[in-house]
């Protein structure tokens, strides 16, 4: 699940998975199953079936 939607991806590594999903070069932050995953940790993070990935970016806020 990526941002609440089921997605099939071929890359299990988080950095490559983000590239595959079209996020390459974007200013974003990630959380996996409710836990923050820093930019530095993405290379060492692998996704598995059923994981919930959140990909967030700067947006309007009050």
């Amino acid at each position: 699940m990526i941002n609440g939607k089921n997605k099939n991806i071929t890359n299990v590594n988080l950095t490559f998975a983000l590239d595959e999903l079209g996020y390459k070069g974007k200013k974003l932050a990630t959380a996996l199953n409710g836990e923050f995953v820093s930019v530095q940790s993405r290379d060492n993070t692998n996704l598995k079936e059923g994981d919930k990935l959140e990909v967030l970016s700067p947006q309007q806020g009050g």
Binding site: N3, G4, L21, G22, Y23, K26, K27, L28, A29, E54, V55, L56, S57, P58, Q59, Q60, G61, G62
Partner: peptide, 22 residues
């Protein structure tokens, strides 16, 4: 300026667009 974090679509670039203004 207060800002937030929200879900980003892989197809759009709303986050970068917004951030470039702020």
């Amino acid at each position: 300026a207060t800002v937030s974090l929200r879900r980003e679509s892989g197809n759009l670039d709303s986050g970068n667009s917004f951030w470039s203004i702020i």
